[in-house]
């Protein structure tokens, strides 16, 4: 017999009480934001694909099988094979890993670094703020392709460098939005109180200001997820992204899509559909989140 303390019992009760609330909340979300729910479902499927790729398909996404190249979709290869005989479905499933990795890491890194910098800029104000703003202006205005080229050329190609290249402009954008929200918070008396208490700048920025700009942060974050995936595809298209033989949707579209667009259309269509669906899912979900968190927040 297990005995529970009074507090534990209470917690248990609370848990039990909370459960229906959670599912109720989910239901509420689905009812009020059916598009958002659909988006979330797409994202979940993607995450599922990425995590369980090894179990979903038994083909090797990298190994060439020249005897079976350019096979049209059939029972074995449900989406056909590419010019190296690699199963297209397998590469799409594994490609979800690359897409999610690039999407989540660059969106999180971009939004979070932007959050800290934006809040800091608002908090310190004055010259630091002015200078920081100009730097962000430059980064925002700067063509992505040059940044990406410089990153890829100095660090080399590879998933991690693609992430770096995509993260940089995200930082600038997040910092901008966060800063404008944080400016209002700086004026609230409790920040002065925290300062009077002698808290360090770091502590005030991270503990007191950052949590209060969570709404714009989350909105920027979700909006960035889809964009990161699109950017990865565009960089791959220009030859600056992820490289063979790593399975990546953008890469699958780059050479094969155009070359075999007609003789083997399955190579061109499915990776494009995968990208579109993923970005679509993230955007629908992001929009719903935006509506819930702050219906008044502008698109930018």
């Amino acid at each position: 017999m297990v005995t529970l303390s009074e507090a534990q019992v209470e917690a248990k009760f609370e848990q039990l009480a909370a459960k229906p609330t959670l599912s109720k909340r989910l239901w509420e979300f689905c009812r009020k934001q059916p598009l958002g729910a659909a988006g979330a479902a797409v994202v979940l499927v993607m995450i599922f694909m990425a995590v369980f790729a090894d179990y979903i398909t038994h083909f090797d996404p990298v190994k060439n099988d020249l005897a079976n190249m350019l096979t049209a979709p059939d029972e074995t290869y449900i989406l056909g094979t590419d010019q190296f005989g690699r199963d297209a479905f397998t590469r799409i499933v594994y490609g979800a890993r690359t897409a999610l990795l690039v999407g989540f890491v660059s969106a999180f890194a971009g939004a979070t670094i932007g959050l800290v910098l934006g809040v800091a800029s608002a908090y310190f104000g004055g010259r630091f703020d002015l200078l920081f703003q100009r730097v962000m202006d430059v980064v925002m205005a700067f063509p992505l392709i040059i940044l990406a080229l410089a990153v890829v050329a100095t660090l080399g190609t590879g998933v991690q460098n693609v992430i770096v290249a995509i993260t940089i402009p995200f930082i600038a954008r997040s910092a901008r939005v966060v800063r404008s929200n944080a400016l209002a918070i700086r004026e609230i008396p409790y920040i002065d109180a925290a300062r009077a208490l002698g808290y360090s700048h770091t502590r005030i920025i991270l503990r007191h200001m950052a949590p209060n700009v969570m709404a714009p942060y989350l909105i920027i974050l979700t909006a960035s997820l889809g964009q990161a995936i699109l950017l990865e595809a565009a960089l791959s298209y220009l030859g600056l992204g992820v490289q063979e033989p790593i399975p990546s949707w953008g890469l699958m579209l780059q050479g094969g899509a155009e070359e075999f667009a007609e003789t083997a259309p399955w190579i061109a269509i499915w990776p494009g559909v995968a990208i579109s669906l993923a970005v679509f899912g993230f955007n629908l979900f992001g929009d719903a989140l935006r509506d819930i968190l702050d219906p008044k927040l502008r698109a930018r």
């Binding site: 889809g226 298209y237 579109s276 993923a278 970005v279 679509f280």
Partner: peptide
């Protein structure tokens, strides 16, 4: 909204092709 988000979700080069 689905129609309009679809526009942003499709890679532009893919759409062009």
């Amino acid at each position: 909204r689905v129609f309009s988000i679809a526009g942003i979700a499709m890679p532009s080069f893919w759409l062009g092709i």
